[in-house]
């Protein structure tokens, strides 16, 4: 069954949705102004007036219903009024304002999330689906909640391939999973024989999803997840995993290398081919690591380094 409440650690938030009809002359400033107010961007679509040649668009933005809502709303109305004065033939019009409750917007996609074999041995299955595993297969139950890591992204698959190969060569007893998301990588290590795994993430929704998945996979005795700053960690690990983005992997390079035990393995993913991959390889080599293997899939690259 699909998890009903992905926000167990907090109450769902309320948002005020503003839909504004604009002409092509006012679309850009309205989108820009609304994006500044929301801080998270806008959606824009051709207005549904049946005319494909129409130059009318709708711009939709969401403001959090908090103590700043009235002030932000006032600014928006003032901006639209003044723009209407400047463009009387094409005035931007606020056509809809509605309150919406935060929900898990990936529910529809989840109904199409089926078990998937990602590597030679690792199968990912939604926690609400059944799967008959072969003897040598490892099945990870995942309820993604609002977190990264369902195994459908190439970077997760590449990281899992490298984890599987690393454990085939040598079992790593202690694992740090940085940016754990759904905990998919850490869980794989637990099922492959790791004895102690710690997943960290700066997103509370991800930590909530990770904790749920650790429980679903019955790995609470060896794996935990928390919202802690990596800089506060001092204990070294035999295996460190980080499937994040290039800029974060670059900024975190010194601390990741510092936290890696001698002869330890570092697996990095979430890196695009080309300049991103090149700079990661150069940076981590400079910090004293050796490349053991590099995997490519679609436009993504993952590295396995040894200290």
């Amino acid at each position: 069954m699909i998890q009903q409440n992905p926000f167990k650690h907090r109450s769902p938030r309320s948002w005020r949705k503003f839909t504004i009809q604009v002409s092509n002359k006012t679309a850009d400033p309205v989108a820009s102004f609304l994006s500044t107010l929301t801080g998270s961007g806008v959606e824009n679509n051709l207005a549904e007036n049946g005319n494909k040649q129409s130059k009318t668009e709708t711009i939709t933005g969401y403001l959090l219903e908090d103590h700043e809502l009235d002030e932000n709303k006032g600014q928006l109305h003032l901006f639209l009024d003044q723009l209407a004065g400047r463009f009387p033939d094409f005035p931007p019009v606020l056509i809809k304002e509605e309150s919406i409750q935060e929900e898990d917007w990936s529910q529809t996609w989840k109904t199409h999330f089926k078990p998937i074999r990602l590597t030679k041995r690792i199968v990912i299955k939604p926690s609400w689906e059944k799967y008959d595993a072969d003897d040598d297969q490892i099945v990870i139950d995942i309820d993604p909640g609002m977190a990264f890591g369902t195994g459908h992204h190439a970077s997760t698959r590449l990281a899992l391939e490298l984890i599987e190969k690393s454990f085939a060569d040598n079992i790593s007893p202690s694992v740090l999973d940085v940016g754990t998301g759904t905990a998919i990588l850490g869980l794989a290590c637990g099922l492959l024989g790791a004895e102690k795994i710690f997943g960290i993430d700066n997103d509370q929704d991800a930590v909530a999803a990770a904790k749920e998945n650790i429980k679903i996979n019955h790995l609470q005795h060896i794996m935990s997840a928390d919202n802690v700053d990596i800089q506060t960690i001092s204990e070294p690990y035999q295996l460190i995993l980080a499937n994040i983005t290039h800029d974060v992997l670059t900024a975190m390079a010194p601390i990741l290398v510092k936290l890696l035990q001698n002869s330890g393995t570092l697996i990095l993913a979430g890196i695009l081919e080309g300049s991103q991959a090149d700079s990661i390889e150069i940076l981590y080599k400079k910090l004293g690591l050796t490349v053991v293997s590099i995997r490519h899939s679609e436009e993504w690259v993952a590295f396995r380094f040894l200290k």
Partner: peptide, 15 residues
Amino acid sequence: PPVGPALGQHGLNIM
């Protein structure tokens, strides 16, 4: 929002 509702209504993998 706006990513979640926009992609969610089409059933896309948001993450």
